[in-house]
Simulated assay, not measured.
Amino acid sequence: MLEGKKVIIIGDRDGIPAPAIEECVKTAGAEVVFASTECFV
């Protein structure tokens, strides 16, 4: 589905962190160019 796409990930500290999203996106075939977990308070 995401084969050959480049992805920027912004995770949420109290929700889904970036490393978890990153693993899912890599499994779908995308290349992660930036991943960060932020705190939105």
Rank of each mutant, 00 (worst) to 15 (best):
M1N: 14
L2G: 09
E3H: 13
E3S: 11
G4W: 12
G4R: 14
K5A: 10
K5H: 10
K6W: 04
K6S: 14
V7T: 15
V7H: 09
I8K: 08
I8V: 15
I9T: 07
I9E: 02
I9W: 02
I10C: 05
I10K: 13
I10H: 10
I10R: 11
G11W: 03
G11N: 06
G11H: 03
R13Y: 03
D14E: 14
G15I: 09
G15V: 06
I16D: 09
I16P: 06
I16Q: 10
A18T: 06
A18H: 02
P19D: 11
P19R: 13
A20T: 13
A20W: 10
I21E: 09
I21Y: 10
I21W: 12
E22Q: 15
E22I: 00
E23Y: 06
E23S: 14
C24H: 13
C24W: 12
V25Y: 05
V25R: 08
V25E: 00
V25Q: 01
V25W: 00
V25D: 00
K26T: 07
T27M: 14
T27W: 13
T27F: 14
T27G: 14
T27C: 14
A28D: 04
G29I: 01
G29Q: 05
A30T: 00
A30H: 01
E31I: 02
E31C: 08
E31Q: 08
V32G: 05
V32H: 08
V33N: 04
V33F: 05
V33R: 04
V33S: 04
V33Q: 11
V33T: 12
V33W: 02
F34M: 13
A35W: 02
A35H: 09
S36E: 15
T37C: 06
T37P: 07
E38G: 03
C39G: 01
C39Q: 06
C39I: 02
F40A: 05
F40E: 05
F40S: 04
V41I: 12
V41Q: 00
V41T: 12
V41S: 02
V41C: 03
